[in-house]
Structures are given as C-alpha cells and as structure tokens.
Simulated scan of single mutants.
Amino acid sequence: MQLRVQLFTVHKRFALTISRGTTAQTTNVWVVIEHDGIEGWGEASPFSIGEQPQTTEVIARSLQKIAPLLKALSPLERQRVERLMLEARLPSGARAALDIALHDWAGKQANLPLWQLWGFERDRIVPTSITIGINPPDLAQQRVKDWLGQVPTLQALKLKLGSPAGLEADQAMVLAVQNAAPHITQMSVDANGGWKLEQALQMSYWLADRGITYIEQPLPKGQEGDLPTLYHESPLPIFVDESCFSSYDIPPLADRVHGINIKLMKSGGLTEAWRMLHTARACGLKIMFGCYSDSALLNTAIAQLSPLADHLDLDSHLNLLDDPFVGASFQNGRVLPQEQPGIGVRLRSPKAEG
C-alpha cells in the first residue's frame, strides 16, 4: 500500500483555555493510504502531556519514515502493520492516524460503515458535551450563549476548571455557566490536573451540591497515588484522562477511579481503543470518549465506537472555522456517524463553505 502525508491548519472559533494553556489553532496531519484503488483516511492532531509533546513535525516525520516499509503490505494485514509501528516506535498520534486509515480502507472495501460492520446501534449514542474553557464569569456566560446560538440542541456541557486564579475563580465560573444555561442539567467538569488533593476534595463536595455529574482528571498525571483518597471520599464519580493512555494503564486504576477517557491520539487508534473499552468494562469502569483539536475526520472515526460509551466529549470539530472534512452529523445534541462506507468522511466542497 502507498501512504501519503499532508498537513493542514485549522482555527478555532473560540480559543480554548485549560489549566495548561490556551489553543487557538493547530496544524494537523492527514494520512491517506491507497491499495487496490481504494483510499483509507486517517488523521493526527498534536497534543502535549508530560515531557514529550507529540508535535505536528514529530508525527509527520515518523509517518514518512515508515511509509517505505508499508509498500509490501496490504491494509488487511493489520497485525503486521501494528507490529511494524511498535518496532519503529511511532508515537501514539502517528499510530492512530495510520490505524484509522486502515479501518477506513477495510470499511470501504466491505462497502459498509464501521459502526454497521461492527453491529452497533446508533440509537444508543448519548449526547456529546460542549466544552467551555477557563474564562472569567462574564466571558464564560458569553461562550455558553454563543454555543447555544450555534447549536441550540446541545444537551450537555463540560467546564474546564483548574484556573491559575484558584478555587474561587473556578466556582465563580461554574455559577456563571449554570445561570446562563439553567435548562442544561448534564454538566461535568475537567480540571486537567489543575488541583491538589485537598482542593479536589473541597471542590467535589461543592460541585456535587450544584448538580455536577462527574469530575475528570482532578489531579496531575503522576499523582495517581492520591486517587484512592479522592475515590473513597468524593461524592462525585472520578474519571481520568491524562493518567490513562492504553489498556495497560487501566488495571492499576481500577480501584481508584470510576471511569476513563479514551482519546484516539493517546490510545494509538481504534484498535487500541477497542482494547481499552473491553479492559475497562472488565474492571467495572465507565467509558467516555474525548478529543483534542480534532477535525470531523477524527471525531467521526471515534463516533463509530460511540454506541459503547457512557459519556462523550466530541465537540472539537464543531468549534472549527475551517474544518476541511465533513463527516458525522450533529442531531439533537448527538454526534452521529453516517451510512457511507468506512468512517464516512468526505472533503468539504469549497462551494459549500460559502
């Protein structure tokens, strides 16, 4: 099979601020494999957790390096491809882009969308949350109003907390958002590791009193030893994101969290996302799917697995001004994969943009 790599830049409608910084645009990597006249598409978006950020350049360079080794293989030889990626030490974002392209190719060859090929029911897909970044109360309220103007059918919100200004700023933002959208009862918070244990405990009670549904990544990656205390004392369920990359990370977390956040960039693609799903369920944990600065291509790919998730946070493509792809539809607050073969993504027509 032949592999092509192309870069594209996307700009956010609303810049997103989390505890680690602010993002207004990213340059993502579009991967195309071609074999027997069929193309499979994949994507990677840069992200940074810990000391080794997966930049656009790192991801693209690793894919270009492995391209010559793929020429002798078929997209159906996924075990061989996976072994080759691991031997070449591809970063997870690069593995994800190629793995997604392989799945897309297989679905197109079978002439079936992946969700149907896997026997899933789209009716089981839950609403996706819309993310409100860290902001002063007035700006947070305006963001909610802006989103309601753009997607009036939204049913769930996720609030980024862990403000450098402290817990009072976090609390003020929560109250402002709830005042701006009193009809939305599904609200969760994500601290992105921005709290210490004592702060997380204090906020868990305060948030529970205000109807918040769960807390995501309250403590920094590397402080998983403090999670048991929070797990046993918090009145709210605890989910982890940055603390969980692959299926190997899940068993040690099973006695100290209630659920995990699976992202394609962290897991290395749909293949490992499947493993994480089954491992988490076997450990009695809940499942959520999340995203980074992903276009419609990536979010449509993970949407193929969405009937198996308890919570969804797949809103990044809805916040893009110049997404080059069209994929899953947004209906009644839900991101729904289509009936086109494979992932079901096409390039956006320039005429349609106007």
Rank of each mutant, 00 (worst) to 15 (best):
E51G: 06
T9E: 15
P53K: 04
E87Y: 10
P350D: 14
A303R: 03
H35I: 02
E43Q: 10
K263A: 04
M288R: 01
R61I: 13
T55Q: 02
G342N: 07
G225Y: 00
W30L: 15
Q304G: 01
E43H: 09
L236E: 06
T23I: 14
R122D: 00
P251H: 13
P46E: 10
L285M: 15
V257N: 07
D315T: 11
G149S: 14
A176W: 08
P182V: 09
E43Y: 06
T22N: 05
N299W: 06
I18M: 02
V335G: 02
A67L: 03
L314N: 06
E43D: 12
M1P: 04
R80I: 13
E82L: 12
G333C: 01
L102D: 08
L161M: 15
G107M: 02
W30D: 13
H278V: 09
F47M: 02
L86Y: 07
A172M: 11
L285C: 04
A101V: 05
L297V: 12
Y292C: 10
W115E: 02
F330C: 05
Q6F: 09
V32A: 05
S19M: 06
E242T: 14
L336G: 04
D99E: 13
V5D: 03
H311S: 08
G211F: 00
W115Y: 12
S316V: 07
K158Y: 08
Q171A: 14
K108L: 07
G149P: 07
T22L: 04
S293C: 13
S188C: 13
I33L: 12
P136M: 10
M203T: 09
I132K: 03
I262W: 00
I18Q: 00
R61L: 15
R143W: 02
S129L: 08
D249H: 12
P136F: 09
T23S: 12
E34D: 06
I59A: 02
L320I: 11
G133I: 08
A106I: 13
K196S: 15
L321H: 06
I59M: 07
L175Y: 02
S92F: 01
T22G: 06
K196F: 15
D123F: 04
A280S: 13
T128R: 02
H11A: 11
L197T: 09
D146L: 12
D138K: 12
M173P: 01
K65C: 10
N28G: 09
E77H: 09
Q340A: 13
F289H: 00
K12C: 12
L159C: 06
Q223V: 05
R256D: 00
L230I: 08
L102Y: 07
G133P: 05
E77G: 13
M288L: 09
D170Y: 13
W115R: 01
E87K: 14
Y231F: 13
